[in-house]
């Protein structure tokens, strides 16, 4: 059964992205959906629906005119990265902020790999990563 909570969060992220995209500042379109993915998969694990997130990615790609598969590739890469780390390394450490930041940075890098920029690479990377981190903080604090 689809959790409405996840849909609401997706709609919120999409609308905020839409608002942000009205201002042409470094195209912050992917930042919020990355935070949404991380929140859904890594933070809020209660009632998590994997395919629901995949559909969200598909819809997001359609909404913002990305190639179909862009968002889901990022999301699946993050999940794959997490799974591989889990299999290879056995750390009993508890959930850490740095891990989320690492995931955000990785997601931004994957996005840049899929959509290489010819200029403003560093500002784009810094601003979008910051936006993702801020949005993730807000989600963790207030989403539930």
């Amino acid at each position: 059964m689809i959790k409405f909570f996840q849909i609401k969060l997706f709609v919120l992220s999409a609308v905020l992205t839409l608002l942000a995209s009205l201002f042409d500042i470094f195209y912050p379109t992917i930042s919020l959906i990355i935070a949404f993915f991380i929140y859904c998969f890594f933070v809020s694990t209660d009632g998590f629906k994997f395919f629901c997130v995949l559909i969200s990615g598909f819809l997001f790609d359609g909404f913002f005119n990305f190639n179909f598969g862009t968002c889901n590739l990022i999301f699946l890469s993050l999940v794959f990265f997490d799974l591989i780390l889990k299999k290879l390394i056995s750390i009993k450490k508890k959930q850490s902020n740095y891990y989320f930041i690492l995931l955000i940075v990785l997601a931004q890098l994957i996005f840049l790999l899929l959509h290489p920029l010819s200029q403003n690479f560093i500002p784009y990377f810094i601003i979008n990563s910051s936006l993702s981190i801020i949005y993730l903080i807000l989600l963790i604090r207030y989403a539930e």
Binding site: F42, V43, T45
Partner: peptide
């Protein structure tokens, strides 16, 4: 809530 969670995802 996340104080008791592990580093990697439980999914």
């Amino acid at each position: 809530k996340s104080k008791n969670k592990t580093l990697f995802s439980k999914n």
